[in-house]
């Protein structure tokens, strides 16, 4: 039972990993700092732990999909991320691909019903 649970958990994690990039790019249409992004994702039904989100933000920044700068907000130093031009292109491309995949999956599900 535990093994089965772990296997399913791994599969779900794999699926979420790819979707998370898309979710972050989508959320970054408005600028966010790490914590506000995490809250934003959580409020929209995507619970992401810090150990995943912050390294991902850095990775996306190193891939020039995001830009960041330090700002003082509410008396606190925060690193604020924004979508770059490359990120905007990637967001549109990924969204298109997502719709395509979603449609394909819907078709497959209909075929098997």
């Amino acid at each position: 039972m535990t093994e089965e649970h772990e296997r399913l958990n791994k599969l779900t994690m794999e699926l979420r990993r790819g979707v998370l990039i898309m979710a972050v790019l989508e959320s970054m249409v408005t600028s966010h700092y790490g914590y506000s992004l995490r809250r934003h994702l959580e409020q929209n039904g995507l619970d992401v732990d810090e150990g995943t989100l912050y390294p991902l933000l850095r990775r996306l920044e190193s891939q020039q999909l995001l830009t960041s700068d330090w700002q003082v907000q509410e008396g606190r130093k925060r690193r604020v991320y924004q979508l770059s031009d490359n990120g905007q292109t990637a967001r549109i491309t990924m969204e298109r691909e997502w719709r395509h995949l979603n449609q394909a999956l819907t078709n497959l599900a209909e075929d098997t019903q």
Partner: peptide, 20 residues
């Protein structure tokens, strides 16, 4: 290279979480 940057961001995140 990333030490201060990551630590500052982490501290900011923890403070925000405490506030929340």
């Amino acid at each position: 290279k990333v030490r201060n940057d990551v630590a500052d961001e982490l501290l900011s995140d923890l403070q925000d979480e405490c506030d929340y």
